[in-house]
Design a protein around this nucleic acid. Sequence first.
DNA 1: TCTGTCTCCTGAGAGC
DNA 2: TGCTCTCAGGAGACAG
Length: 291
Amino acid sequence: MPELPEVEVTRRLIAPLLVGRRIAAITTTRPSYVFVTSPARLRSALPGRSIRALERLGKYLLLRLDDASTLVIHLGMTGQLFSSRARSPRLLSATARSSLAPEEQAAFEPDGHTHLILRMEGSGPDVYFRDVRKFGKLLWLAPGKGHPRLDRLGADALKIEGAGLHAATRKRRVPIKALLLDQAVMAGVGNIYADEALFIAGVRPGRRAARVTRREADALAQGIVRVLERSIETGGSSISDYVTPDGSDGGYQDERRVYGRTGEPCLECGAAIARRVVAQRSAHYCPVCQS
DNA sequence: TCTGTCTCCTGAGAGC
DNA sequence: TGCTCTCAGGAGACAG
């Protein structure tokens, strides 16, 4: 489930394959939930365009094109953006993996989940966007055009500070975890890193946002930046479908303190990690270390 | 305006 | 072995 670190790692690794190159042609699947902009519109807008820059805004990737238009990509839950030369079993379903001999399992050919193929001019690799659950988004913005999805985003989570976070919690009755997941408050935090940051700060995910003290907000802001930066350093979290653009796994899944560790001992106190639903998301926390 | 719920989607895994 | 059910979650739409 790509959050800010996974998107940032993707940006850093895929940029050299895209920036400065021209799109020769694109291939799309039929219209679906993935396409905010229709496949037909993408097919007319993208070929022939050079990519000037690849930027990140929260969990969104922005491909800046030479005609000042922008291709916006959101990876959703299971989105994968990778090189056509990438090799990873994570690029195959378990069914597909099981039907292949071990030495063949890393091979990948575009399948029905590969919604966009950017075929690039020159001898370099092409770039695939694949998304099994179709929660990802592909959106093309005409030159000079914005979009409400992007306009609503709050400050980048890597730049969040205690004062700003504390101000955002005032008079908010929602659980603090719901606030952290609100992309209008800060952009980039998802379920995994919200849980991890709350553990570092010693705050339970279900506590009302307005009851978080200034001191705790400072700790929470520091915790958010700390887990995001550490995850970027390790290549992100490969918990389900995420792979880096070259097909390798991230490393942060091995450093999780609470997320997905229900029933396992807390690394600080040994108590069993608990799980409950907060804001319709599973929240993992230590009932002793977090209050 | 704020908050909570529903919806979209599909593979994995549990249970029978 | 095969079928059915539940779960996972980002974010927009909608109701109260």
